[in-house]
Amino acid sequence: MAMSKIFNMENIMSFQEKSAWIMALALIVTTGMCSWSVYEASVAAGELVSPNLSMISSYTLMLVVIVVVGQIVISIRSPKQAATPADEREIAIERRSGYTSGWVIGIGVVSALLNYLHWNDGDLLFYMVLGSTALSAIVDYVYRIVLHRSALF
């Protein structure tokens, strides 16, 4: 009984917050694994390895699988919440986190372009844009969680 209360997230988190946790964790895990693979391959090769479509697509597929399974699990556990659209506070949270993550991707992409103009390295440009995209998505979901917890805005 006590354990079921501890793991009963129904009343603690809204569906949107649970969904943000899944997205954040899935993005952190897959981005971390992908970055480590590139790092290891680059160390072995002695230079930055070129982007590999099969590696990128395998991590993208892994991300999709984790997110889909996670969303199905929380939807099954809270079917009523899953069917309810985001309310006004949740929409405001999404708007605010989206604004912040927009800055992250913007700064990342501009930095990547400036870096390309200086070094003329297309591989680095690719990794910087991909990294900025992933980082911006992580910032988006982590900030959503923070706002759901604090709700100060």
Binding site: M13, S14, D87, E88, R89, E90, S150, A151, L152
Partner: peptide, 28 residues
């Protein structure tokens, strides 16, 4: 939860309004 359901917001939003951590829209 009952109040949230009646006015169209989540239980967490009702809790945030009660604790003065969120100001509801005029409509809510």
């Amino acid at each position: 939860s009952q109040l949230g359901e009646a006015v169209g917001v989540t239980r967490q939003t009702v809790a945030a309004i009660e604790q003065r951590r969120y100001s509801p829209s005029l409509e809510t």
